[in-house]
Lab assay of single mutants.
Amino acid sequence: TDVTFHVNGRNLHLKGADEELLRRIEELIRRGADIEELEKAVKEWEK
């Protein structure tokens, strides 16, 4: 799945995201995470 999140005026584009990653990103956004936290979560998922 390709999806782009718009967070605090910045874009986080995910290519090939699975349901697990999407749920994790949505949860972080609900908690008020900043873009750096979201990018870190994506990097951890990519490993």
Score class of each variant (00 low, 15 high):
Arg31Thr: 12
Glu20Lys: 12
Asn11Lys: 13
Glu37Leu: 09
Leu12Pro: 00
Arg31Phe: 11
His13Ile: 14
Lys47Trp: 10
Phe5Lys: 14
Glu36Leu: 08
Lys47Phe: 10
Asn11Glu: 15
Leu38His: 00
Thr1Gly: 10
Ala17His: 04
Val3Glu: 08
Leu38Val: 05
Arg23Asn: 08
Val3Phe: 15
Leu14Gly: 00
Ile29Met: 06
Lys15His: 12
Asp2Met: 03
Gly9Glu: 04
Glu37Thr: 09
Val7Pro: 08
Arg24Ile: 10
Ile25Pro: 00
Arg31Asn: 13
Glu20Trp: 11
Lys40Thr: 12
Trp45Val: 05
Gly9Ser: 02
Gly9Leu: 02
Arg24Leu: 12
Asn8Cys: 10
Leu12Cys: 01
Arg30Thr: 10
Arg10Pro: 02
Lys40Glu: 14
Glu39Val: 12
Leu38Pro: 00
Ile35Cys: 02
Ile29Ala: 03
Glu44Val: 08
Lys47Leu: 11
Ile25Cys: 08
Glu36Lys: 05
Ala41Asp: 04
Val7Leu: 03
Ile35Val: 06
Lys47Cys: 07
Asn8His: 06
Leu22Arg: 04
Thr1Asn: 11
Asn11Ser: 15
Lys15Asn: 06
Ile35Leu: 08
Lys40Cys: 12
Arg31Tyr: 10
Lys43Ala: 14
Glu39Trp: 08
Leu38Met: 07
Lys47Tyr: 11
Arg24Ser: 09
Arg23Cys: 06
Thr4Leu: 05
Glu20Ala: 13
Glu37Tyr: 07
Asp18Met: 03
Ala41Cys: 08
Asp2Gly: 03
Leu12Thr: 00
Asn8Glu: 04
Glu39Met: 09
Asp2Ile: 04
Val42Phe: 03
Ala33Phe: 12
His6Leu: 13
Leu28Trp: 04
Ile25Arg: 00
Glu19Tyr: 08
Glu44Lys: 08
Thr1Cys: 14
Gly9Lys: 00
Glu26Tyr: 09
Ala33Thr: 07
Val7Ala: 02
Glu27Trp: 09
Gly16Ser: 09
Gly16Phe: 06
Thr1Lys: 15
Phe5Gln: 13
Asp34Asn: 08
Lys40Met: 14
Ile35Gly: 02
Gly32Phe: 04
Glu44Trp: 07
Arg30Tyr: 08
Asp34Val: 08
Lys43Asn: 11
Ala17Pro: 09
Leu21Asp: 01
Ala33Gly: 04
His6Gln: 11
Thr1Arg: 15
Gly16Tyr: 06
Glu19Met: 11
Gly32Met: 04
His13Arg: 06
Asp2Phe: 03
Leu21Ser: 02
Asn8Leu: 03
Glu19Val: 10
Leu12Tyr: 05
His6Trp: 06
Val7Asn: 02
Thr4Lys: 05
Glu44Ala: 10
Gly16Glu: 05
Glu19Asp: 12
Asp18Glu: 07
Leu21Lys: 02
Leu28Ser: 05
Asn11Leu: 15
Glu19Gln: 10
Leu21His: 01
Asn11Met: 14
Glu19Thr: 10
Trp45Pro: 03
Lys47Gly: 13
Leu14Gln: 00
Gly9Met: 02
Ala17Val: 11
Glu27Leu: 10
His6Val: 15
Glu19Trp: 08
Gly32Glu: 04
Glu39Leu: 14
Asp18Lys: 06
His6Pro: 15
Lys40Ser: 13
Glu19Arg: 10
Ile35Arg: 01
His6Asn: 10
Val3Gly: 03
Val42Trp: 03
Glu46Trp: 06
Asp34Lys: 07
